[in-house]
């Protein structure tokens, strides 16, 4: 009846919505562009220059920084340490967290369930600084609780030097990281376990499937996407983690726990070589991107299978 009115009304409205909808997302876009994309671009730029922390002027030096890094022995050591640190920590976190989640699922008593959950979640709430300091104190080589306990119980003859022994330092740091990270895996895997329809297990039981078989063919397919995603997120986080190692050992003793972020810090802040540090950051990022793409290939493959 009122065709023209409605038409004009509609165009008017669409145009206005067009503006408002951008107002909603604009601030967040500004954050992403100014605080994430711009710094990335300038890091790429710096990586081709001889920029330092001291001077504002710099000139393009081409691939020199990258070549310098590839010739630097401490880079390979840091990279190796990062791989050890990441693989060890993530595997440990997944193993402990996953087992914890399965066990929590077995517990039927509601009170026990929530008590275990709350207690096991505590490390997750620890700020990095508190994690570092409390473990430094527990494992202190002179007055620490654990080394003293081990001597008192006759397990070791001398006080173990967890942080200054170059063979012990990486496993110790990984252990601390597992302590910190396992709860996150546990809680998320446990949540994923709750989404599995219970009748599938009952059906499997009637068909005579063993516990292992129903785990293999019902549990695993249901939760592997979540677990896979957790592994991706944890890998990235652990790979980039600076705080825990910096606060506990600072990369020592003698570089035995220097990972890539610590190497970049030493180069860029202590050594003031912004160009070289930027090049190292970009290499780190490229490695992570490749790794994540591979991970997602696998996860997408699983998702297709599930459908």
């Amino acid at each position: 009846m009122k065709q023209p009115d409605r038409l004009s009304g509609r165009t008017y409205r669409t145009r206005r919505i067009d503006v408002t909808r951008w107002i909603f997302v604009a601030p967040a876009m500004a954050v992403v562009i100014c605080l994430l994309i711009y710094p990335l671009c300038s890091t790429v730029l710096y990586s081709f220059t001889n920029k330092t922390m001291i001077k504002d002027t710099f000139k393009i030096v081409g691939l020199k920084n990258y070549i310098d890094i590839l010739k630097d022995e401490s880079f390979y050591k840091a990279f190796g340490n990062t791989l050890k640190w990441t693989v060890g920590s993530v595997l440990g976190q997944v193993l402990v967290g996953f087992t914890g989640a399965i066990c929590l699922n077995q517990v039927k008593n509601a009170w026990a369930k929530s008590t275990f959950r709350i207690l096991c979640i505590i490390p997750w709430a620890f700020p990095a600084i508190a994690t570092a300091m409390v473990w430094k104190w527990i494992l202190n080589g002179i007055y620490g609780f654990l080394p003293t306990m081990l001597v008192d119980l006759g397990i070791t003859e001398q006080m173990l030097q967890f942080f200054s022994d170059k063979n012990l330092v990486m496993p110790t740091l990984m252990g601390i990281n597992i302590w910190f990270g396992a709860p996150l895996i546990m809680v998320n895997v446990y949540a994923a376990l709750q989404t599995i329809p219970q009748d599938q297990y009952e059906a499997a039981q009637i068909d005579g499937a063993s516990k292992f078989q129903s785990f293999r063919h019902i549990t695993v397919p249901h939760i592997r996407t979540v677990v896979g995603l957790l592994i991706v997120l944890r890998t990235v986080w652990v790979f980039n983690n600076f705080d825990i190692i910096y606060m506990i050992t600072g990369g020592g003793p003698a570089g035995a726990s220097t990972t890539m972020p610590i190497f970049i810090y030493d180069t860029g802040w202590t050594g003031r070589l912004v160009g070289k540090a930027s090049a190292a950051s970009i290499m780190l990022l490229i490695f992570l991107v490749i790794l994540t793409v591979l991970y997602f290939k696998v996860i997408n493959h699983w998702e297709k299978e599930d459908r």
Partner: peptide, 14 residues
């Protein structure tokens, strides 16, 4: 997920 990969030690220089 991509921005999550940016190491904070990389961002801090810019």
């Amino acid at each position: 997920i991509t921005t999550y990969m940016f190491p904070s030690i990389m961002l801090v220089i810019p």
